[in-house]
């Protein structure tokens, strides 16, 4: 009898011990909209953070259904990082539905990654929807320039320092490592692309200006007549004509748009259609922010080679 009591006593103690809150070092929970931001957040936060992105790498960031399950993700988040510049028009609704004042605009955990980044195509004239889906704050695909990656990382760092000031030195050190890695890798990437400097391309949507600008490529046209407006027959035929005249050999398109029109354009103009993800995890092997540029540059160079563009070792416009 006594033994049984003892057993019950110890079991109770054990049960109580299990229910006690365990002293686990809490990680900073970061939710980002895109996988690119998630990758940079992981690189800066290291093992002190838990990162999740709302959209997948192969998804179109412009159109995202406002699912209540995203609100649950944000409900528990310490930090919410977004691309900004009105790319994610869907994000405020999710953030407000999350009932988490930390991550609302102006809260300590709210990070707009675009602050301070080099933004291209900021409209200088009055914008109306006649011009298509123009982003009034400039082209939001700015993460495709590695130099802007540093700015994004800095915005994330500032956010982390607000959320977990006690770890600031750890984050700062990782940020310095991130910057150094970009500084180490960027000259290599530029060197690889140098022989193709000035190469003309056509893209489906106008989502590559930062990338093209950094690596010296030129977009001479877009498959979409205006941003966000599906191609019309008249536009497509004139584009094909332009491609023929300008000697464009490569048409670039993101994986989340229909390929049939771009394929038609490529077929009729003798160009190659290259499906290129603008985001981390958008294609196999693109596992982080650095890997994204490796992938983009390698894919472009092999596409250029296949299309018969002869590299010009000295830089400048390559021959055909």
């Amino acid at each position: 009898m006594k033994k049984r009591f003892k057993g019950i006593f110890w079991l109770t103690i054990l049960g109580l011990a299990l229910t006690l809150p365990r002293q686990v070092e809490a990680k900073v929970k970061i939710v980002t909209t895109s996988t690119d931001l998630a990758s940079i957040a992981r690189l800066i936060g290291g093992d002190k953070v838990e990162v999740e992105s709302i959209i997948q790498g192969y998804q179109n960031p412009h159109y995202v259904d406002i699912k209540p399950s995203y609100m649950i993700k944000l409900h528990k988040a310490d930090m919410f990082v977004k691309v900004g510049l009105d790319l994610e028009l869907w994000s405020p609704v999710i953030a407000e539905g999350a009932r988490n004042s930390k991550i609302l605009a102006g809260g300590p955990g709210y990070v707009d990654a675009s602050v301070g980044a080099e933004i291209m195509e900021i409209p200088q004239v009055k914008i109306t929807r006649e011009l298509g889906d123009i982003h009034i704050f400039g082209n939001p695909h700015y993460w495709l320039d590695p130099e802007n990656g540093k700015v994004i990382a800095d915005n994330i760092l500032q956010g982390l320092k607000r959320i977990a000031p006690e770890e600031h030195a750890y984050f700062e050190e990782r940020k310095a490592e991130f910057d150094k890695k970009i500084d180490d890798l960027l000259p290599g990437w530029l060197e690889k692309m140098r022989p193709y400097k000035g190469t003309k391309v056509v893209t489906y949507h106008n989502s590559w200006p930062n990338f093209l600008n950094r690596f010296g490529l030129v977009a001479v046209g877009y498959v979409e007549p205006k941003p966000g407006v599906p191609p019309s027959p008249a536009h497509v035929t004139s584009l094909i004509d332009k491609i023929r005249h300008e000697g464009v050999k490569v048409v670039i398109q993101e994986p989340f748009y229909e390929t049939k029109i771009s394929q038609f354009v490529a077929d009729k103009s003798g160009a190659t259609l290259l499906i290129l993800t603008p985001s981390v995890l958008g294609a196999e092997g693109v596992n982080d922010y650095f890997g994204l540029f490796d992938f983009l540059i390698n894919s472009l160079i092999s596409a250029f080679q296949e299309a018969g563009i002869k590299p010009n070792p000295g830089g400048g416009a390559p021959g055909l």
Partner: peptide
């Protein structure tokens, strides 16, 4: 030091 973990 490589980094200081200041006390929260």
């Amino acid at each position: 030091r490589p980094y200081v973990r200041t006390v929260a």
